[in-house]
Simulated scan of single mutants.
Amino acid sequence: MIPLGSEGPDGAVSYEHCFVGSFLTSSGINFPSMKVTLANVWHPIGGISIFDLNEGRYLFRLYHKVDVDRIEAGGSWTFKSHLLVMHRLRGREDPMVSLVTIDF
């Protein structure tokens, strides 16, 4: 079992400071390469953990609100020219939320 979210005071899992995302591509993504590349590009001051949720979906867990705000405001993100569709999770929101829109 991998703790994808953080446990709140009531024992429930919270996804505060998390994004869920998927790349617009019909081919697979090299997960280790993507993790290293995005960590280097985003360079979060509080660190980052990236989990493969399967079916082309990834959970990005950051450890500082400043990093979350900066990445969210930073615009459209890509990896090897594949657009990353991201959604910022709030509280206990399900990470399997529908990813159908992106703000430019």
Rank of each mutant, 00 (worst) to 15 (best):
D94E: 12
R88T: 02
S26I: 08
L38M: 07
L89P: 00
V100R: 14
P95L: 01
S6E: 15
S22Y: 06
R88M: 10
P95E: 01
Y63W: 10
R90S: 08
F79T: 01
L84D: 00
I45R: 13
G47Q: 08
V20T: 08
E55M: 09
A39D: 06
T25D: 02
S98F: 11
A12G: 11
N54E: 13
H17Q: 14
S27F: 09
D52M: 05
E7C: 08
V97R: 14
R61H: 13
H17E: 09
C18M: 10
G21A: 06
S81W: 06
K65M: 13
G28R: 11
H64A: 11
S33C: 01
F104H: 07
F79L: 03
G5I: 01
S98P: 08
L38N: 00
G28F: 08
G11Y: 06
V100G: 07
L38W: 05
T78E: 11
E55G: 07
K35Q: 08
G47A: 10
V20K: 00
F19K: 00
V68F: 01
P32L: 08
I71C: 00
H87Y: 09
S49W: 03
G5W: 02
A73R: 13
Y15S: 04
D52N: 15
K65D: 15
R90M: 05
N54R: 15
H17S: 08
L83I: 06
F104V: 12
A73D: 11
K35R: 14
D52K: 05
I2C: 10
L62C: 09
E93Q: 15
S22N: 04
T37R: 02
M1F: 12
Y58P: 01
Y63P: 04
R57C: 02
E16H: 07
I45V: 15
G74K: 04
G46L: 07
D103H: 11
